[in-house]
C-alpha cells in the first residue's frame, strides 16, 4: 500500500477482507469441505490474495477512468482480473499438492470465479478511494486558496490608519510652528516614526508584542500633543509577554478607536487602559471611557470584525475576542491560549 493512501482507507480495505475471507470459507464448506478444513485453508488463502488485490490501487492510479481510452482501460482491467483470478487458482492448486486430502483441486473453478470477482471489487474500491482523495485534495486546495486570499485581504486592511488622524496631527503641527517650533519639530519626528514603523511592520506576517507596543506608544505620544491633559494612559504590561508574536497592527487600531470614539468625544477626556497579562494564556484588554449619550459609531463593528478575524487567523480558533460595551465604557478583550501565543 502506498504511503499517500490514507491510513483509514487502508484499514477499511483490510477490514473489508474479513467478510470476504469468511465468504470463501463458507463457499468451500457449502461445496463439501468440512468446516475445519474450509477455515484453515480458506482464510490463509485470502492473505496473499488481499495483498495482490491491493496492487489494484496502482492500476487505478495509472489508468484513470476518463478520457478517450476508456475501452482500452476496461479491457486491461478485465485482463488483469482474469489473470489475478488465475493466479489465485494456481496458488490453491499449489496448496492442494502440499495438503493432501484437502480436495482443493475440486474447488479451483469456484476460487477462480471468486478471485476475479474480488479483484474487480477491489478495483472499484480503489477507484472510489482515489476519487474521494481527489475531491478532498481539490477542497484542500480551494480552502488554502481562500485562506491565502483572505490573508492578503486582511493584510491590505490592517494598514488602515485613519487619514483624519494624519490631518488633525498636521493641523496641530501647523499651529505649533509659530508658537513652539521645538514641539512642532518633535511632532514631525513622532509622526514620521509612526508612519515609517507602521509601514515597515505591516509588511511582516508576525511581529513581537514589544514592537506593537512601541508603535502604540508613538501613536499615543502624538495624540497627547493634540489632546494634552484630556488623554491619559494606564499601562499594565507583563514583561514576560513582550517577546511573544502578534500580527502587526492588531492592537493599534483598537487604541486608535479608543481615542477617536472614546476620549475625543469626552469633554474632560479620560484614561485609556491597556492591559497585557500572561498566566500562561495571554489576555489583552483595551478599555476606554465613553460618553453615555453617544451611540455606537458606524463602522466600528466592521473594524472589530476584522480584528477578530485576524486574531483567529493568526492564533487559531481557540483565540477569542470579547467586547463589553457599557453605557460609559468600552472594552475589547483578546484571549489567546498560552500554547497559541
Amino acid at each position: 500500500m502506498p504511503g499517500s493512501f490514507t491510513r483509514r482507507a487502508r484499514i477499511a480495505y483490510y477490514l473489508a477482507w474479513l467478510p470476504m475471507a469468511a465468504l470463501v470459507a463458507v463457499v468451500l464448506h457449502l461445496r463439501g469441505m468440512p468446516w475445519s478444513l474450509a477455515l484453515s485453508i480458506g482464510l490463509p488463502l485470502c492473505i496473499p490474495f488481499a495483498l495482490v488485490c491491493g496492487s489494484s490501487y496502482y492500476m487505478a492510479r495509472a489508468m484513470p477512468l476518463r478520457g478517450s481510452h476508456l475501452a482500452q482501460v476496461l479491457t486491461s482491467l478485465l485482463a488483469a482480473s482474469v489473470l489475478t483470478g488465475g493466479l489465485w487458482a494456481a496458488l490453491a492448486l499449489a496448496i492442494a499438492y502440499l495438503v493432501p486430502g484437502s480436495h482443493l483441486v475440486d474447488q479451483l473453478g469456484v476460487l477462480f470465479g471468486m478471485g476475479v470477482g474480488y479483484f474487480v471489487l477491489s478495483l472499484i474500491f480503489h477507484y472510489l478511494i482515489l476519487a474521494m482523495e481527489e475531491t478532498r485534495r481539490m477542497e484542500d486546495l480551494e480552502r488554502e486558496a481562500r485562506v491565502l486570499a483572505r490573508e492578503a485581504e486582511l493584510r491590505a486592511l490592517k494598514f488602515q490608519t485613519n487619514p483624519h488622524f494624519l490631518f488633525n496631527s498636521l493641523n496641530a503641527i501647523a499651529a505649533l510652528t509659530s508658537t513652539s517650533p521645538d514641539q512642532a519639530r518633535r511632532m514631525c519626528q513622532l509622526l514620521s516614526s509612526f508612519l515609517r514603523d507602521s509601514l515597515r511592520l505591516s509588511d511582516r506576517r508576525s511581529i513581537t508584542i514589544r514592537e506593537e507596543l512601541s508603535l502604540i506608544r508613538t501613536y499615543l505620544d502624538i495624540e497627547l500633543v493634540r489632546f494634552a491633559d484630556r488623554l491619559t494612559i494606564d499601562e499594565h504590561v507583563d514583561e514576560s509577554c513582550l517577546g511573544d508574536p502578534i500580527p502587526p497592527l492588531l492592537l493599534q487600531p483598537l487604541v486608535e478607536n479608543a481615542v477617536k470614539h472614546g476620549i475625543s468625544m469626552l469633554e474632560e477626556g479620560g484614561a485609556i487602559e491597556l492591559t497585557l497579562k500572561k498566566d500562561p494564556d495571554l489576555t489583552i484588554s483595551i478599555e476606554n471611557p465613553l460618553d453615555p449619550a453617544s451611540s455606537s459609531p458606524p463602522g466600528t463593528s466592521r473594524g472589530l470584525a476584522i480584528v477578530e478575524e485576524r486574531l483567529v487567523a493568526f492564533y487559531g480558533k481557540h483565540a477569542r475576542m470579547v467586547v463589553h460595551r457599557r453605557s460609559d465604557s468600552f472594552q475589547v478583550i483578546l484571549e489567546i491560549p498560552g500554547d497559541a501565543a
Binding site: 488633525n168 493641523n171 496641530a172 501647523a174 499651529a175 505649533l176 509659530s178 508658537t179 500633543v225 493634540r226 489632546f227 494634552a228 475625543s264 469633554e267
Partner: peptide
C-alpha cells in the same frame, strides 16, 4: 473646536 491647538491656529 475641542482641540486647543486647532483653536490657536485659527486664531493666529
Amino acid at each position: 473646536d475641542d482641540e486647543p491647538l486647532a483653536r490657536q491656529y485659527l486664531r493666529e
